[in-house]
Design a protein around this nucleic acid. Structure first.
Lengths: 232, 232
DNA sequence: TCGATGCTTCGTCTAACATCGAACTATGAA
DNA sequence: TTCATAGTTCGATGTTAGACGAAGCATCGA
């Protein structure tokens, strides 16, 4: 009677709080060790080991052995997309995690969403790019304008033509759970975030599993000069 | 420490097989009664009632009272999108439901994906539209060409300009779990499917919860004339 | 070779939750 | 009113799977 993919199996994998915590940590885009993930999820290593093997046979994560460490990462950007989608549904329904800590405001201001910038600043950047007509957005489908290509090359030394990828779009709208609006994903979004890091405008929070992005003082100024309210 | 949306809660809702069955049935886009959903999931009405209330407080489905019936539907196209995403992940990992029935081949050939055409024919249509240069697809972002607009108006009497929607894109690539390739979603995909039905080219299978789409003999011919292999 | 560290496997315990029978409410038909 | 149908609530039951302690491999450094 019932045919088709077993979505319950995959959803059940994500449905356990401990596993969801680990997956959320991996949404940071970094590969993390089993111990780090156990710590993130607040469980013992042996419990984490069990969870990780389940996630792996489920195809959600991949493993890479390196010495006596085992590094885990999300197996695919598609996985990240589904996780963000779930986060969007949860945020809309108002089901937020209860214990929001001191990092929460920082997380809302700027954070990594897999490999690109999210949070208040991420949304602000996409808004600004649109208002400056550097991007053309026709509801979820986004294109870089000719002017936008020049801007990327000049202001950020990003060769957008070189960012073509067989599986990922150049620009993509990604729903932001904290702002409930879109920010910029895709290879361009990732390249911009990488450039911010290279230029020392911003850095990932040191704590493993943290998705907070801290802007330096000068980085914040330069960001504002390019994407600030004034240029809206 | 951990902030953000509670994705585990939402995923756990989908993670129960009975609830996943109901949600999959609702992916058909029709509103179904509690009894029908119970039957679909193979559980008793009282169990279904419990599940349905959980899905409702979780924001995944909505309820509409009509006499002594209660009709349930997915609360949002976004929910459908996440469910399809989960199906994609499950299909890729090879986790298919075991008991595949006689309907399975029909389901793979043509089925409803929320409100648009999926399966072999759905993928074939998107391929053909692309090869005829009626759509321009730059990886996941799809646009209708000027020629495509004329085609829609002439061949299917669809005014694509009238399909603009504040929340949904006109064209969207949706991953097809049976073909593991994309088919056409978005308001245009929905409008085309609706037109197929109006023209009696195809009809939804009568059984409640079924997602099978049956093409009529003449409908199949006309579909092939527009999107068939020959026109590739 | 030895110990320390990272991770896994095994066994057991426990708590959560899906399930159903029975009883109750609400709507519609006669 | 009375009966039938649709659906819910309650309580009892049973299974599942998540948790950790203890022990076992594997890898690194000395």
């Amino acid at each position: 009677m019932k045919a088709g993919p077993d979505i319950a199996m995959i959803a059940a994998l994500v449905g356990d709080p401990a596993r969801a915590n680990m997956l959320t940590a991996l949404l940071g885009g970094r590969a993390l060790t089993a111990s780090e993930l156990a710590h993130q999820a607040g469980i013992t290593p042996q419990t984490a080991s069990s969870h990780l093997s389940k996630l792996e046979v489920g195809g959600l994560i991949e493993q890479e052995k390196q010495g006596r460490h085992r590094y885990y990462r999300l197996s695919d950007p598609d996985v990240a997309g589904v996780l963000e989608g779930l986060a969007g549904l949860a945020a809309r329904a108002g089901h937020m995690r209860l214990r929001t800590g001191p990092k929460d405001p920082a997380l809302r201001r700027a954070r990594i969403c897999y490999d690109h910038l999210a949070g208040d600043l991420g949304v602000q950047m996409l808004d600004s790019l649109r208002k400056q007509r550097l991007l053309r957005q026709t509801r979820q489908t986004i294109e870089l304008t000719a002017e936008g290509e020049r801007f990327m090359a000049k202001a950020l030394q990003i060769d957008s033509a070189a960012l073509a990828h067989p599986r990922r779009p150049l620009c993509k709208a990604c729903l932001d759970w904290s702002e409930r609006r879109h920010h910029l994903a895709g290879t361009l979004g990732a390249a911009i975030m990488a450039r911010f890091t290279e230029l020392n405008w911003a850095a990932r929070d040191a704590a493993p599993g943290s998705r907070v992005v801290n802007f330096t003082r000068s980085g914040e100024k330069r960001f504002a000069a390019l994407f600030g309210e004034s240029s809206d």
